[in-house]
Structure formats: C-alpha cells, structure tokens
Design a binder for these strands. Sequence first.
DNA 1: CTTGACCCTATAGTTGCTAGAGGGTGCATA
DNA 2: TATGCACCCTCTAGCAACTATAGGGTCAAG
Lengths: 135, 135
Amino acid sequence: MKIGELARATDTKVETIRYYEGAGLLAPPPRTGGNYRSYGSDELSRLSFIRRARDLGFSLDEVRELLTLADDRDQPCGAVDAVASSHLATIERKIADLAQMRDELARVIGSCRLGKVGDCKIIQTLEPMRGAARG
Amino acid sequence: MKIGELARATDTKVETIRYYEGAGLLAPPPRTGGNYRSYGSDELSRLSFIRRARDLGFSLDEVRELLTLADDRDQPCGAVDAVASSHLATIERKIADLAQMRDELARVIGSCRLGKVGDCKIIQTLEPMRGAARG
DNA sequence: CTTGACCCTATAGTTGCTAGAGGGTGCATA
DNA sequence: TATGCACCCTCTAGCAACTATAGGGTCAAG
C-alpha cells in the first residue's frame, strides 16, 4: 500500500502521515525500489487508532502513551483508564470555560444592534473602565 | 508606567505585551532616555480591553477588528454585534464538539479498571478493527 | 562599585499540522 | 522514444498566540 492509499483509507492527508512518522507515532515503513513508503494492514490499524484518538481530542503525547499501553495486552488497563480519565477532566474543564464565555457573550449580544458604538453593551463589557476614566 | 507595571496591572506577561506591540494591537509607546517603554492610562485601558476580549475567546484578528470598531464611537454597532455573534456561534460549535467527545469518553471510562488491556473498552473503542482483523 | 531588579532586541521553541519548492518514479499514450 | 500526468520524495517555512532563552543595557540602593 502506498502512502496515498493509506491516506484515503484513513481520511488523513499524506503530509500528516509523514508527520506522524517523524513524530514517532508510526514506525518508518519499508521502501519500494523507487523509495516509496510501503504500508501493510498493521499500519492501517495503527493509523486508524491514532485518528480515532485524535478525534476524541487526545494530544499526540497521549496518543503515544495509549499506543504503548495498547501493545501490552496482558497488563491491567488501569493506566489506560487514567489517561482517558485525565483527558475527560480536561475536556470537561474546557466545556465549562466555553460555556461561561458563551453565557457572557449571549448576555450582551443583540441588545444594541441599532444603537451607536458609544453605547454598545459588547464594547462596554470589554472596556469597563473607559467611561470612568474618561468622564 | 514601565512595561512591568503595566504587566502586573493587567495580569499579562511582559513578553506578551511586547508581542501585542509587534502584532499591531498596541502602538509603540514613547521611550525613556534609557530606551524603556513608557505607558499611560490609555494603554492600560487598551490592554485591558484586549485581555478581556481574549478571555472571551476572541482571536487576535477579531480583537483588532473590535478595537477598530470601538474607536468609531458614533458608528452604529451592528458590525460589533456581527463579530460577537459569529464568535458566539464558533464557541457553540466547539462546545458541541467537546460535549460529543465527553459523552463518548464517559461511556467507556471506568468500565475496565480491573481488567486487562486486551479487553479494555477504551482500547477497543480506538481500534475497532483489531479484533476482526486479528482473530 | 557592585548587586539586583528590571529593561532591551532577536531568535527559537511550543502543538499539530499544512503548504510550498524542487525534484524523482512509474505508467499510459502518441 | 518522448511526453504527460499522477503520484511520490525531502526539506523548509508558515499558521496561532504566545513563551522562553541568550546576551546584553539601565538604574537605584548599599
């Protein structure tokens, strides 16, 4: 399998696959006579794994860790659970942060579409001291 | 006011202030005899504005746009509202994406803390074809 | 007159790719 | 045989938004 086929099969760009190789997530595959990378079904599985983990928001470092853990199939999977749980906590923190932004923005949007910038609630939210400091 | 004081007053790192200057968000301030940047209360207001906007998740491009709009205080503020609304939509999309990740992760976490990696639901979620392809 | 806190510029590193330059390979077709 | 085309190769630079480092200069206090 050439890199382009692997790319199509996993919905990944060719450059991204080479990048993953450089980043140590994929081992350098054997080459053809013309120096083309040649992949088998193991690499297809591994890249699919990586893509799914990335889709779930795991960082490349976390993916590396999960790949290492996944290869030790007889180990207890508490370590896997720990990586995933910590990632879940990160996601929940991000959601909370974004929800707060959303609420703040929603509160001021739409309240001054027809007014002037000088009275705009959005601008006032951003520069709360300007009125006080300038009179 | 020297850059360090401005940094403390706005909870911003010194390097970030210099970066904002290079990025065109803050004008180059006057210098002292010793070539130190010298800021006044206008810059404090402007940097506070930038920080608040950044806290709300606006990109530097959006901040630049908001700053330009905010300076035209007699203009109607429909354009401000448009920037904020589009940003709100982006935030809501991010929240939805993260919520989906959270749900998928939460579904598999905690179900196999005592099992082996070979049976781990988290790993299975990531490599759904391995079982089929390998027996 | 030296210590220490602060400031300066310029450059490289971070994450996770993506895009480009400048070239080689391999197959079909004229 | 030549030529075109899709595909592959390496290397390097670019993106956001900083952060950190190197290697210096300034200034007030002791």
